[in-house]
Nucleic acid binder design. Structure first.
Lengths: 343, 343
DNA sequence: GAATCATCTCAAACCGCTTTGGATTTCTCA
DNA sequence: TGAGAAATCCAAAGCGGTTTGAGATGATTC
């Protein structure tokens, strides 16, 4: 069933039928209802391919997921972020296009998405400090919103980010208030902008209490269980081991916990841990009382917000770039307590 | 830059240019090279929207992700599965379309994808025992491949699945051989087909050694850390607690491990654990020596295979449905040992 | 009663590509 | 040399919608 057929059945022209269905004012209300009813009855759905060609819009948003050559890590927050963004797209009649590409072809991918006219805009994931994608997208004129920020980029662009700096600043202060002074940072990869901001929050909080950050207490690696385990294990073996850990993610923290237990220590008593909790649906941080004390910010909600902003940018291309900074909440769980020997 | 313009520049007709670019035989080799060079020079990319309308194909595959009303779980294997499938699509010039929809509109979503002509085929995720999607898709004539199987469906259809029954059968036997007799099963939700198959492998292995499955030793729930923790905690508190656990996923198992440690026991010594390991990139099961003894099967590889099968089904719609059964490997880690009191 | 104006509807162009059905030119070989 | 075959290339008709510009109809105004 297509427009023309439907029009013939109704004894109307395709023009009128199209206008009736799309809510244009120049069609009689009675006619419109008749058309609507017929469309419903015949189960008519306009062909997406035709709409896209005719309107010059693709009603689709692209997400480019770079994957390094072999066995590279898929970001674990990805599923929840996508779920959030996807809800927004569905609600607004947009499709979500995922491109999984080798990371050295990411730039080409954006260019092609634009040239092919496959999408109306894209979301930029996991920005680095000097992320070249931002200028690229501006240059080729493909609307975009960044999930996160790129501190090294000075041109204005739209983004949604968590206040990572403040979150880690607060978390560090919280540990300091508990009497900890040997606080370690198990960070994500520090070419990622969010990781840099977290570290600066941590370093500054220490500095404001006159503590110089100890390089031996700072690591930066993939946010995996195994990496978290190694980092914590190594630090716990030191003569003056840390009494507290600031950990970049729930998953890293599971490795940290494993290392703590392997060392015969008890988390929350001998060693305190604060994590950043993305509120992943499959990795809830406990129930009534959280397992880990955490700075929490829902990545799913972020997905919704980023998607909404992008649809807005697409709809109103001439407005100035928008920004939205989300604050993380500090929630107290069972993984923190006073520094040992201070009670 | 579009076809017509390019043709004008070259002094050729759009027909010839199109044929030259698409490798049709009826164009002079010299002409083809001239066209190719011009296309490259001008950075020409055919407009996807136009190709789709003209060919009647969308060169896109749909993945429908149902999300229950509020705060429902996103399947943690999703990211890796998508990464695998996405690689296949990219390599073959297909786009991946993700639809995140409320779970009560899933059926409508498939219908609309078909009516709108948005995709050439779909992947069916997480089939239930009597999954209505299979007959629906057959009825509306939308090509599909199921990741998993639906035991209750007798019509033939294409699928790629892991031999879950055998995997859990072997794992159970392995524990029995170690002298365990009180073996618990912490399963996924048993309306999922794979969970049913796993249970039957477990039950049958016990039965073949003359052991009747104890209902108190079998639970079925979401595969989350918290659920795993609760299930294990409850069982470990029993008078005759299990000495071994068979756990449906790495994430559940992290909860199980937490419960074991909370009970003052040592995993691998007091309590053995075998998990099913989907080989998630962000949740590697240890390194040289796995943390958990596991039945392992890469979900990313499964994604690749499912996608390849679907592209094949789309290309050759008339061939009979295909099936592919993958075997899981049983890998020995540090979480299993002889039953206590047997050494 | 003619002129003006809304209101409603339609024919046709267009989006950018593919593909059918020739037309034209060049080869081939008796 | 000339007919048939092969090799090239092209005009035009879709694909299924949207949208422009104009026509038809009926109501309103002077």
């Amino acid at each position: 069933m297509n427009l023309k057929e439907l029009a013939t059945q109704l004894g109307l022209s395709p023009t009128t039928v199209s206008r009736a269905l799309n809510g244009y004012p120049e069609v009689n209300e009675a006619t419109r209802e008749r058309v609507m009813a017929a469309a419903k009855r015949t189960n008519y759905r306009p062909n997406t391919r035709a709409i896209r060609l005719a309107t010059g819009r693709s009603l689709a948003v692209g997400h480019v997921i770079p994957i390094a050559t072999r066995h590279e890590i898929v970001n674990p927050i990805f599923a929840d972020f996508i779920a959030g963004a996807g809800e927004t797209y569905s609600r607004n009649g947009y499709d979500m296009l995922l491109s999984v590409v080798a990371d050295d072809t990411e730039e080409t991918t954006y260019r092609e998405l634009k040239l092919r006219g496959a999408v109306d805009g894209v979301i930029v994931h996991s920005p680095r400090t000097h992320d070249p994608r931002i200028e690229l997208l501006r240059d080729i004129g493909l609307p975009f919103v960044v999930h996160g920020r790129a501190s090294g980029i000075s041109i204005p662009y739209s983004w949604v980010d968590v206040n990572n700096r403040r979150a880690f600043h607060r978390a560090t202060e919280f540990l300091l208030d508990l009497g900890h002074s040997r606080i370690a940072l198990i960070n994500g990869l520090e070419y990622m902008d969010f990781a840099v901001r977290r570290r600066s929050g941590y370093v500054d909080a220490l500095a404001s209490r006159g503590i110089a950050a100890n390089p031996a207490f700072m690591t930066s690696d993939q946010m995996t269980e195994v990496a978290g385990f190694h980092a914590a294990q190594k630090m716990l073996a030191m003569a003056n081991a840390p009494t507290a850990f600031l950990v970049a993610s729930m998953i890293s923290a599971m490795g940290v916990r494993r290392a703590i237990e392997a060392a015969g220590l008890v988390m929350g008593r001998d060693v305190s841990v604060i994590i950043h909790d993305d509120d992943l649906s499959y990795l809830q941080n406990g129930e009534a009382v959280p397992i880990f004390t955490a700075t929490r910010s829902s990545v799913r909600e972020a997905g919704r917000l980023v998607a909404e902003m992008l649809l807005h940018v697409i709809a109103e291309p001439q407005v100035a770039p928008q920004q939205r900074l989300l604050e993380a909440e500090l929630i107290i769980g069972q993984s923190t307590g006073p520094a040992p020997g201070r009670l």
